[in-house]
Design a protein around this nucleic acid. Structure first.
Length: 268
DNA sequence: TCAGTTGTTTATAT
DNA sequence: AATATAAACAACTG
């Protein structure tokens, strides 16, 4: 479910199958995913248009064409699938773009977000709104500065798309755990060394998650342990703590991620 | 039956 | 002003 690595995977689907190709047909099976555009307008605007190389900013997928740009946000349940034409549709395929070699299917169970059109580049900025630098492209100094110096919990800051764009609940917990930083720690208390460690682990976690096209529940990662009832920390075995932080379900190791640097903390 | 959900926005409260 | 919490969106799972 879509955070930066998932959306990066959808961007790859577009780049491999749609870039340079012409839209033959647009089917809207459920207009509930259309935002500020009618099914008819979407169809008329995109039919016959050619996709350019797709871009991503945070969790937004930006599909420019030789006409308007198609902007997609996947919410909690959206996906982008490539399939041969005529193969069985999924009940949650809401919009289908027919291309010469197959179909691009926007699948979304819950319809919490969706797609819209941007006629001009300035409209893209307006739709994306007050969004921060992309988590994959932000530099170390900008990252450290973006976290700020307020009383806000570091987890809330990392999740805030206007601070850094692309991090979701799973990624944020994974990065904090790898960097041995307590999710409730106010950003004002983060030393430069803490910010450096967070940045380094942000890079490392993304580097491993992007090829997997999701936050992988792989051995030695927090994500693999977070679902179990009585899970222990993959690093030190201490029973994991679970509570709400920044309004989201949060899992952390009370030993590695104690407010003072943990006795068993081995970042990485 | 009802709480919970990997996202975002808006309203309300502190 | 800044920060925190809850609800709403929608549809499913356990």
């Amino acid at each position: 479910m879509p955070e930066l690595p998932d959306v990066e995977g959808f961007r790859t689907v577009l780049a491999e199958h749609a870039a340079g190709r012409q839209v033959e047909r647009v089917e809207v099976a459920d207009a509930g995913v259309l935002r500020d555009v009618s099914a008819q307008h979407l169809q008329r605007s995109l039919r016959g248009r050619r996709f350019a190389d797709p871009e991503r900013h945070g969790k937004w997928l930006i599909a420019r064409t030789d006409g308007p740009a198609l902007l997609m946000h996947f919410g909690m349940t959206g996906q982008l699938h490539w399939a041969e034409a005529g193969t069985g549709r999924h009940r949650h395929d809401r919009v289908v773009f027919t291309l010469p070699d197959g179909e691009l299917r926007f699948r979304d169970q819950r319809k919490l977000q969706g797609m819209t059109l941007a006629q001009r580049p300035a409209d893209i900025d307006r739709v994306l709104g007050d969004i921060g630098p992309d988590a994959l492209r932000v530099g170390q100094r900008d990252f450290a500065a973006a976290l700020g110096t307020g009383r806000q919990a570091v987890k809330a800051a990392l999740l805030d798309q206007s601070v850094i764009a692309g991090l979701g609940n799973l990624l944020t917990d994974e990065i904090l755990w790898h960097a041995c930083v307590n999710p409730r720690r106010p950003v004002r208390q983060l030393e430069p060394a803490d910010r450096d460690r967070l940045y380094g682990q942000l890079r490392q976690v993304l580097r491993e998650a992007i090829p997997a096209r999701q936050v992988p529940a792989q051995a030695g990662w927090l994500t693999a342990a977070r679902e179990a009832d009585d899970a222990g920390c993959p690093r030190c075995g201490t029973p994991l703590e679970k509570d709400r932080v920044g309004g989201r379900s949060t899992v952390w190791c009370p030993c590695c991620q104690s407010v003072e640097p943990g006795p068993c903390c081995q970042p990485g």
